[in-house]
Design a protein around this nucleic acid. Sequence first.
DNA 1: CCAAGGGCGTACCGTACGTTACGGTTCGGC
DNA 2: GCCGAACCGTAACGTACGGTACGCCCTTGG
Lengths: 216, 216
Amino acid sequence: MQANADIDTSATLTERQKAVLDAALRLLVEEGDNLTMTAVARRASCSKETLYKWFGDRDGLLTATVQWQASKVRVVPVDGEKLDLASLTASLEGFASDWLKVISSDTSIALNRVAVGHAGSGKDDLGAIVLENGRFALARRLKPVLEAGKQAGFLDFTDAETAFRTFFGLVARDVQIRLLLGDRLESTEAAIGGDAARATQQFLALYGAKTGPQGL
Amino acid sequence: MQANADIDTSATLTERQKAVLDAALRLLVEEGDNLTMTAVARRASCSKETLYKWFGDRDGLLTATVQWQASKVRVVPVDGEKLDLASLTASLEGFASDWLKVISSDTSIALNRVAVGHAGSGKDDLGAIVLENGRFALARRLKPVLEAGKQAGFLDFTDAETAFRTFFGLVARDVQIRLLLGDRLESTEAAIGGDAARATQQFLALYGAKTGPQGL
DNA sequence: CCAAGGGCGTACCGTACGTTACGGTTCGGC
DNA sequence: GCCGAACCGTAACGTACGGTACGCCCTTGG
């Protein structure tokens, strides 16, 4: 289907439909891409006819499921009012920690797996949806923080996109690809916190302004 | 998963079999995971019966194809005899550039896609094979260089694995996941070179020894 | 020259699954 | 109480594809 991919969804969804999509999501996490319409219907205690009436076909159900999950992680925009270095550091660490938790979660792994698989034979735009609500959403939320840090004199960069991508790399490293490829990689709360702190310190070492906020 | 994944294959392969696997590989790049045995047979101008006799079943063909591709990128180990900073930098840049070229290549993307897809429903160990010949092989090749740099006094780190993962993150950033998810992301030769240089400089900024080789 | 075997092409089988159709049940409105 | 709509459960259909069987060709060796 041609995939409008963003608008409209998650509104105009009845509670029952949300429940069905939740069931599909759970099944997706358990079974991967080889979930059948019958299994979804059985799990959701609904009829296949209803599935087809609501979502068109299998791809429609999949994209609806992915969008439904995406709509659930709408986050509050960070208000950048406090400008001291400690709060900037804490904010960056928070982003890093949240991101590591997200990409380590079962549902994220499952969703990324199916999206990657579908990106190969481009029938739908699952990849675009996941990308839009994952990596690009993160960039949209983080960049204002980076800009605020720059304005406050704590950060020094010319291109926010480049700075963001560096931060992204320092945080994620090889975690996501290893998890997607099936590597066990225990991610304890403490380890994630440590990695987030390390990534933040490294980022500050690279992009921290030489002169403090009172400089220049 | 322990995944022997390396031994035995690529030996005991007749030229004809290699040609068949090349055909399968090409088809995998074009079609993704939804390639059929019939299509492979047609492309390779062989019979399905031959495919089954040689490779057992579809999964066998797939793993043989992945291993065949992996066996083709056996690289020469770097001899770390020259110890000046320029050669270390050049070596790191070379690794970064090579790695970016690899993960941007069509065949790598296709192989990772199918491996990620199969990692979901763990029938075979495609994920382990790809991981073993990709990210872990890179680590094995790079770590001696890092250790040599440390011995020579140019680098300062306690854990080579951690240092490697940082370098990995600085080089790859969001490139691989974006490509896997279908994001267009033109990778010109020049851009890759620039990114490799930037990642190397950032890595040296983080892990370069404060004191030079003559220090302490 | 002939027999054997490896391999090509193709027809065929079984099954899994997407998709559709249909009878039975619940529920809101009159 | 009755009607229609929405929905559940399930049976049925069509197809795609993994896997197998068989006939033919071509080469090799005696």
